[in-house]
């Protein structure tokens, strides 16, 4: 699914609106369209298929319950649902750290063509963020992607990068501020 295509966003907004009215067919279609993307996010964070599928259930229970709260002005539908998925995964990691894989994610380096920057730069709609990420100092870039993309806590990032967790918090704050200015959001 092309999440940035306006038609897809409009369909998702329409489906969320009808889900808010307890329309099961709309909810089923919403699941069909969004579940693979959300499961991808969950798997990336918890790296355990069974746990990710359980969390996906929790996500759609919450989406069903909170669909009436969704407003288009509160962000794109997939960003809204993605936040629910990320929070579920983060909570699962926070409450039961042993349930998820303890293996740290592979650090990426933009020069090596690793994910996710390589994927971003291939897409015109995401290349602005990709370019701006490349201009960040390496520690800031790695901190923000380890946090957002892999669900690592600031303590885990501090361990991976060998820096105090307070420093990591500062890197993330500065990285987001710089990216906002660079992308123009």
């Amino acid at each position: 699914m092309d999440r940035h295509h306006p038609d897809v966003n409009e369909e998702l907004i329409d489906l969320l609106t009808h889900t808010a009215l307890d329309e099961r067919k709309a909810f089923a279609r919403l699941y069909q369209l969004a579940a693979p993307q959300l499961l991808g996010i969950l798997l990336r964070h918890v790296r355990q298929r069974a746990l990710a599928e359980e969390l996906l259930q929790d996500c759609f229970i919450e989406i069903w319950d909170h669909a009436p709260d969704y407003r288009p002005e509160r962000g794109m539908p997939l960003a809204w649902m993605g936040r629910i998925a990320r929070n579920k995964a983060i909570d699962a990691l926070w409450q039961s750290p042993n349930e998820a894989s303890s293996a740290p994610p592979v650090l990426f380096d933009p020069g090596a063509g690793d994910e996710p920057l390589a994927v971003l730069s291939e897409r015109s709609e995401t290349s602005a963020l990709s370019d701006c990420l490349r201009h960040l100092p390496a520690a800031q870039r790695q901190s923000v992607v380890l946090a957002y993309f892999y669900g690592q806590s600031h303590r885990e990032i501090a361990g991976i990068l060998g820096s105090p967790s307070g420093t990591v918090k500062g890197w993330i704050t500065r990285a987001v501020a710089h990216l906002r200015e660079c992308v123009g959001v």
Binding site: A28, A35, Q37, G82
Partner: peptide, 28 residues
């Protein structure tokens, strides 16, 4: 929050979609 989400959401473009097991929908 929305501004930060709009900023970082493109990172999800690098997420590989995974088709859920059929029973997950049944359980929901």
């Amino acid at each position: 929050i929305i501004a930060c989400e709009t900023l970082l959401a493109p990172l999800d473009a690098a997420t590989v979609p995974v088709k859920p097991r059929r029973r997950t929908w049944r359980h929901i």
